[in-house]
């Protein structure tokens, strides 16, 4: 990803605007929950790998970890990594250099991750007892 980090106003703008937007979204989430329904679920009736992440995020903001894990365990597991990566990206834009380390995925690791996601997608749509726990 190439981002023009030369522009100083752009850096200042993002540096100030992004925390405000994120805090606003978190406040909205805390008060009212996720407003956007999953269109995939609405149209097909199936649970996608991201279904339940809105409810999970709502529960996470309210510190209800077990309910959050029931809604979408993959979201809860990946959440810290995604947050960290976005923080890294934010600091890269604001400071102009990469301060936080992050590991690089090899092709094999990426494939394993892809298989896990697809397996999660399939398993959570099986309407039998142990798999139902993946999509509460």
């Amino acid at each position: 990803m190439k981002i023009n980090i030369k522009n100083k106003t752009f850096r200042w703008f993002t540096g100030v605007a992004i925390p405000i937007i994120v805090l606003g979204l978190i406040a909205f989430l805390y008060l009212y929950g996720n407003p956007v329904p999953c269109f995939f679920r609405r149209w097909t009736g199936l649970n996608c790998p991201g279904c339940g992440s809105g409810r999970a995020a709502y529960d996470l903001v309210h510190f209800h970890f077990f309910e959050a894990m029931g809604h979408n365990i993959m979201f809860v597991v990946l959440m810290p990594f995604m947050t960290y990566y976005l923080l890294k990206l934010y600091l890269f834009i604001v400071l102009g250099r990469d301060v936080l380390p992050f590991f690089n995925f090899s092709y094999k690791q990426m494939r394993v991750l892809f298989i896990i996601i697809v397996a999660f997608f399939v398993l959570r749509n099986i309407p039998v007892k142990p798999f139902i726990l993946l999509s509460q």
Binding site: C48, L78, M82
Partner: peptide, 19 residues
């Protein structure tokens, strides 16, 4: 460097547009 795209794809996949 595929890692940024991997993270981006997963964020997209989990957060909004699955396909």
């Amino acid at each position: 460097n595929t890692t940024p795209f991997l993270v981006w794809s997963i964020i997209n996949l989990v957060a909004c547009c699955l396909p």
